[in-house]
Computed example of a mutant assay.
Amino acid sequence: MINVHSYESMGTFDGPGLRLVVFLQGCPFRCLYCANPDTIDVKGGTPTPPNEILQMAISQKAFFGKKGGITFSGGEPTLQAEALIPLFKDLKDNDIHICLDTNGGIWNNNVEELVGLTDLILLDIKQFNPERHRMLTGRGNEQTLRTANWLEEHAHPFWLRYVLVPGYSDFEEDIRLLGEHFGKYQNIQRVEILPYHRLGVHKYEAMGWDYQLKEVKENSPEQLEQAEMLFKEYFANVIVN
């Protein structure tokens, strides 16, 4: 069984083309700006037979076109790597393009096999500076960087995604260090700058949790433009989502 939080049909945000997005339950990170705090607890969600997800993808395949497919997001989908491996193999047998949206913070034999079955990785880099990463997520970024290195060494295509949080991940020095580290990578097909938003704040209130970034305002157009110019010094294909 796979523990599913929710689905989004005809998604255009999480990977190329039109996609069925499967949000899985459970995440080891505690990002201060998390828009889906209700996906964090591994005990939530709905236990779902893998075949149910497979049939859903097959039924929507006609809408995917040449670019679309299925994306597994979360939460953190690699927490359920072992259960996902047979499903990914079935999806591949049905010629369905697979994206995996991950923070890259978990690595083991099951995750390695799962990544090998995935067509495109959407790798969320929360912060390059390790101290600020820990402040933002509650975890270090060492494994995320190792995961990126594995993808590069194995010529596995991936997109790099970066949420621009004012006062937390928008420092020029940190973005430049990230650019210097990843700028020579050959397998980063695209860099996505994701604006910080407050869409999940009502969920914190409903759950009785304290939203710690109450004072942080959403990015101004100028801040996004400045970040885009900075990233473009190091990467060819930069998109502000």
Results as ranks from 00 to 15, higher is better:
Glu152Ser: 07
Glu142Phe: 08
Pro49His: 14
Phe29Tyr: 11
Val4Ser: 00
Leu117Cys: 10
Gly11Ile: 07
Glu192Lys: 07
Asn109Gly: 06
Phe23His: 09
Gln55Ala: 01
Glu153Cys: 07
Glu173Tyr: 13
Thr102Ser: 04
Arg139Glu: 08
Met56Trp: 09
Ile96Asp: 01
Glu180His: 12
Leu224Trp: 13
Asn187Cys: 05
Pro77Arg: 02
Ser9Leu: 08
Ile96Val: 09
Tyr211Arg: 02
Tyr204Trp: 14
Pro195Asn: 07
Glu172Tyr: 11
Gly15Val: 06
Tyr211Gln: 01
Tyr196Ser: 06
Ala155Cys: 11
Asp38Tyr: 05
Asn36Thr: 15
Asn103Arg: 01
Phe171Glu: 09
Asn110Lys: 14
Glu215Ile: 12
Arg161Ile: 14
Ile53Pro: 03
Leu32His: 10
Glu180Ile: 10
Phe158Cys: 02
Leu145Asn: 06
Pro49Leu: 13
Leu177Tyr: 07
Gln60Glu: 15
Met56Val: 04
Met1Thr: 15
Thr39Ala: 06
Asn103Trp: 00
Phe13Gln: 12
Ile106Arg: 04
Lys61Val: 03
Lys89Phe: 08
His197Tyr: 12
Asp119Tyr: 08
Asn237Ala: 10
Trp209Thr: 02
Leu194Arg: 12
Gly68Met: 09
Ser6Glu: 05
Pro37Arg: 01
Leu136Met: 12
Pro16Gly: 04
Val191Ala: 02
Gly69Phe: 13
Glu76Gln: 03
Glu113Ile: 15
Asp124Lys: 09
Asp210Glu: 14
Thr118Ala: 00
Pro157Ile: 10
Ala206Gly: 03
Lys66Pro: 05
Leu24Arg: 02
Ile70Asp: 00
Pro47Arg: 09
Gly68Pro: 11
Leu145Gln: 08
Cys99Ser: 10
Thr46Lys: 10
Glu112His: 10
His133Ile: 13
Ser6Tyr: 09
Gln60Phe: 13
Asp38Asn: 06
Asp101Ser: 01
Asp119Trp: 10
Lys184Met: 05
Gly167Val: 12
Cys31Pro: 08
Phe158Val: 03
Phe13Arg: 11
His181Glu: 08
Val21Thr: 12
Leu24Phe: 05
Glu180Pro: 04
Ile121Trp: 04
Phe63Lys: 04
Glu225Ala: 07
Gly200Thr: 12
Ile125Trp: 03
Pro50Cys: 02
